[in-house]
Design a protein around this nucleic acid. Sequence first.
RNA 1: GGCAACGUGGCCAAGGGGUCUAAGGCGGCGGUCUGCAAAAUCGCUAUUCAAGGGUUCAAAUCCCUUCGUUGCCUCCA
Length: 465
Amino acid sequence: MNKITIYDTLSGEEKELTPIVPGKIKMYVCGPTIYNLIHIGNARPMIIFDSFRRFLEYSGYEVTMVQNFTDIDDKIINKANSENVSCDEISERYINEFWKDSELLNIRAPNFSPKTTNYVDNIIKFIEELIKKGFAYQSGGDVYFRVRKFDKYGELSHRNIEDMRSGSRIEISDIKEDPLDFALWKNAKEGEPYWESPWGKGRPGWHIECSVMSTELLGKEFDIHAGGNDLIFPHHENERAQSIALHGTNFANYWMHNGMIKVSGDKMSKSIGNIWLVREVIKKYGPDTLKIFVLSKHYRSPIDFNEEGLEAQKKSVDRVQESLLSAEEFFGGNVPFVKHSENYEKEKEYIKNSLSVDFNTPKATAKIFDYSREINKAITDKDEKAVAEYYYLIKNEIGSIFGLFLSTSEKKGNKTDDIMKIVTELRTVLKKNKNYELSDFIRNKLGEIGIEIKDTPTGTEYRIK
RNA sequence: GGCAACGUGGCCAAGGGGUCUAAGGCGGCGGUCUGCAAAAUCGCUAUUCAAGGGUUCAAAUCCCUUCGUUGCCUCCA
């Protein structure tokens, strides 16, 4: 297996990936709170970590991936109240929609997709243990984590407790022993959903769910914990504190965090209201465009999102799709498999090596365009072997790692093809008779409805845009 | 105020001590092909990597300072 390095937030450096169990990787990705349709800010970690997981599998690892749904939380309660429906109805609805968007993006489902509300018993037990160990205390109907008792607090987000106090934006509360303490269990207010617990009716705090579900599904110590970098503090810091306090293990050995998507300088966020829904973007630009747009930037850098950028990306993706389609037509439908040449293996190595250094997807995706050009050249040269080789480098190597270019040829319907054949023949006759006025008229009219005519030396072709 | 990241061509974006007169994409310019067009293809489009110092035989890459941008410190992917 090739050496893979990734940047680890905790140590602040690139580290070689060494799994706890050789050949196996267990990873936990923080999923969304499901109170709305997902936007492309939510989609970035989905795209990145789905690809990373596929890359690990491509590299020979057996991967167990967990991504949770937070299905109980203030925002869900608010949404439910505003629509006058139950929280369950809200979370079920948006989980459903989440899967639709995932599928549109060609994102594989994780091995486990746990929901917080299914783990309340485990959460209660976890909290009880923390209380027994002195890391948590009850105050009224709430339970809090005693931050100062955990001496590693702040390690992950690289900050120290004293700095945080001087910031003094932390609310002072007389029910907490210390302003830094955070809630493990929240007392239920009037009209809120609740579960029975040793501390009365209430619900889990935000951070505890991930500690519990990761432990239940992956064990007390696992390999990779991932999510957006806005979760580093407080969410991941708190998760880590709870888990290490209770189990004494390292919890997660590697912390991966993706950068934010910004819109003209601001972070894309539901609370600011500058969001782009995944399904809107896909409808307008297609899944491959969105994915390559995301993957052509390094996952830790911020991305500035704008339509011009997507527009440019779409053009590049259309060109690739065009060449794949041409390759299929070149072989009359199906591109035959060919024995991997030395060159093919060399290219595979290049892709693998690029992705093995802190998952450098921009370097790998750049290859798509090189291969696309090679396909076009090979078609011109009638080099069957090369056409097939570069076709499969895109489709089966890069495509399988990133979930790209799954379907190329379904843009044409059967009847459309028949009609177009007639139109094409008509134009050929017209052109033979030098009736360019009429043949151009047909071409222009078709162009207006999005059918592009191309008169090539070998005959007339068309594309539906 | 504290912590962290970043500043590469007109725009997006890799590279992270020598193979960099810097990959790839978008755009632009020119050639080939074509009745014309589109597509394709070929060539050109950063002696330069925010600015100023320093280390080194050698820096876009390391160090310092300044300027600028962003994220986190409160729910957030």
